[in-house]
């Protein structure tokens, strides 16, 4: 143990924190951009999956199967290196990460939304219809608010996983938290940078958990 800690002093520690905070910012950017695009996209995908037109529902089903059936790591590599091998085209690594994450997470969110929508009792639609609400009013006023409450716990799981999955961006060389900390770990031959990174991930997910707990409590006024 002594050798692992011997090269770490207070001056290095503050330098490390500055470096890792850069990584945290990159990780948070991946996290936030993915979430902002994947949630609405997942919403659309969940509707497309239920489309009565096979030309829409079949490709969507295949897409969801592939996204959920293969490792995200592999998807990242294909999104980034695929265009290079096929068209000899290389492009921005960060963009590639966003594309891969959005495609993957939209599939998962779509299935969460679908489950939430399908769990709604048919009586809610019938009551709304009998009262003369249009289809759009029924969905946005009656169904969606209740679906949000129902899918919060499952969504929390997904969002927590997303925080940790941002570490996969290192595979194509994006300098996020995990990439920077493992670089420091080998540079200093110490586990301390990795341990600090772990604390950062933990704190981020603590915040995510607290945010979801807050929303669940806000929606706790009815059953």
């Amino acid at each position: 143990m002594e050798t692992l800690f011997s090269t770490i002093d207070a001056a290095y520690m503050s330098k490390l924190l500055v470096i890792l905070l850069q990584g945290v910012l990159t990780s948070l950017r991946i996290f936030a951009i993915t979430l902002v695009i994947a949630v609405p996209l997942g919403f659309l995908v969940s509707f497309a999956k239920k489309s009565k037109y096979k030309i829409i529902s079949v490709p969507i089903n295949i897409y969801i199967l592939i996204m959920r059936g293969t490792p995200l790591l592999l998807q990242i590599l294909i999104v980034y290196f695929g265009p290079y091998y096929v068209f000899n085209l290389s492009y921005n690594r960060f963009a590639a990460i966003i594309i891969a994450f959005v495609l993957n997470y939209a599939a998962y969110f779509a299935e969460i939304f679908r489950g939430g929508i399908e769990s709604m009792p048919v009586g809610q639609y019938e009551a709304a219809g009998a009262l003369g609400f249009t289809k759009a009013q029924t969905f946005f006023r009656i169904i969606l608010p209740q679906v949000v409450k129902r899918i919060l716990p499952a969504s929390a799981n997904e969002v927590i996983t997303l925080v940790k999955d941002t570490a996969l961006a290192q595979t194509i060389g994006v300098a996020e938290l995990f990439a920077l900390s493992s670089k420091q770990a080998s540079f200093k031959t110490s586990v301390i940078p990795l341990f600090v990174a772990g604390i950062f991930y933990f704190v981020l997910n603590w915040a995510v958990t607290a945010a979801f707990a807050y929303f669940e409590k806000k929606l706790d006024y009815y059953k």
Binding site: G123, Q124, E126, A127, G132, F133, R141
Partner: peptide, 29 residues
């Protein structure tokens, strides 16, 4: 709209207060 329907299982909107259950359709429909 000329027919009111009362269901066996009530089918109230659980996320609305009693008042809003009654006023939502007059206001928005």
């Amino acid at each position: 709209l000329n027919i009111g329907l009362v269901f066996q299982n009530f089918n109230l909107f659980p996320h609305f207060s009693v008042m809003r259950n009654v006023t939502e359709a007059p206001i928005h429909v």
